[in-house]
């Protein structure tokens, strides 16, 4: 029987919990269910391609599989902005999960990626949360913040009145430590913990800035088509299952990590006061419409999202 070996480039560094929990898990599941006929060779973030180039490499079939953040595929995927999260849209992780799998946003993503020879599967949905050096108790506290941010959230935080600037991951710890910035987001609790941010910023801000499918697994359609049909089905089913397993497991680990940070490092949860939350939501909503303008599909997704949020009683 023919065996296949896929090169898989991750956007997670090896120490990231998702590298093991998502990617190594998937590797083991696939090897087991195909009786060893499909093997994955995993590469850490940046080992072969810069994370931002992984979509192109998979699209060209140079890599058989990769993990990305939807933001890295923005130039191709007009839905990427909505996939990587509109600020303050969902309030619970299950809502985002239902939006993807129940309402069909996942299928929309898959259809758009298919145009580039890529099979798209969201790895998990989860929140992005900030850590800050001093608690946010008033709106003024928030607007005085210098926050390390990136991409759409940087724009959002700036619009909302904070001073958001981009600092590369390699300099984040020092910047937060010395006070170049006094807040940052890097995933949520697990991300902050892995980057050592709790050592220098003791307040974990909730609710999250967004909840979204911020990690995605992409497979080269060419590589997928080369597999016998039974194996293709195994891959697709494993990816579908991955979403639920990982979303749930990630939430669990978030809570455990946060509890550990609270216990061992003296971290406190800083719940944003209602008026701060309300003002942030208002700013956020005024920015959502931008994302719809990228394409008809994006507009369709945005309309669907708004109808859904209305149904949930949030709009």
């Amino acid at each position: 029987q023919e065996t296949f070996t896929w090169k898989v480039q991750s956007h997670w560094p090896g120490a990231s919990s998702s590298y093991t929990d998502s990617l190594v898990r998937l590797k083991n599941v696939l090897e087991e269910r195909t009786d060893g006929r499909l093997k994955l060779t995993l590469y850490e973030s940046g080992a072969l391609f810069k994370a931002q180039e992984t979509f192109n490499a998979v699209s060209r079939g140079i890599l058989e599989m990769g993990t990305i953040s939807p933001a890295y595929a923005q130039d191709k995927m007009t839905l990427a902005g909505i996939a990587s999260g509109l600020p303050f849209a969902f309030r619970n992780v299950w809502e985002a999960a239902y939006f993807h799998q129940g309402l069909g946003f996942e299928q929309m993503l898959r259809d758009e990626a298919a145009q580039y020879g890529v099979y798209w599967a969201t790895d998990k949905v989860y929140p992005t949360e900030m850590v800050v050096k001093n608690p946010i108790k008033t709106w003024d506290d928030f607007t005085r913040l210098k926050i390390r941010s990136s991409g759409a959230l940087q724009k959002f935080l700036t619009e909302a009145g904070a001073a958001a600037s981009y600092i590369p991951g390699g300099e984040l710890y020092s910047a937060l430590d010395s006070g170049v910035v006094d807040g940052a987001h890097w995933g949520a609790a697990q991300g902050a913990y892995s980057m050592g941010l709790y050592e220098v910023a003791k307040y974990h801000v909730q609710p999250g800035l967004n909840i979204a499918g911020t990690d995605a697994i992409i497979v080269s359609q060419k590589a997928l088509d080369k597999l016998p049909e039974d194996m293709q089905l195994i891959v697709k089913q494993a990816l579908a299952e991955q979403f639920w397993v990982r979303t749930n497991e990630y939430l669990f680990k978030e809570r455990v990590t946060l509890a550990k940070a609270i216990k061992e490092m003296g971290v406190e949860v800083n719940t944003l006061p209602d008026d701060v939350q309300n003002r942030l939501v208002k700013t956020a909503q005024s920015m959502w419409d931008e994302e719809g303008k990228r394409s008809d599909k994006a507009q369709e997704a945005l309309d669907m999202l708004k109808a859904y949020l209305t149904e949930l009683g949030y709009l």
Partner: peptide, 11 residues
């Protein structure tokens, strides 16, 4: 990149 008039999608 030129064909798509690619931008960075940063803030």
């Amino acid at each position: 990149s030129i064909r798509n008039l690619e931008t960075t999608y940063s803030a």
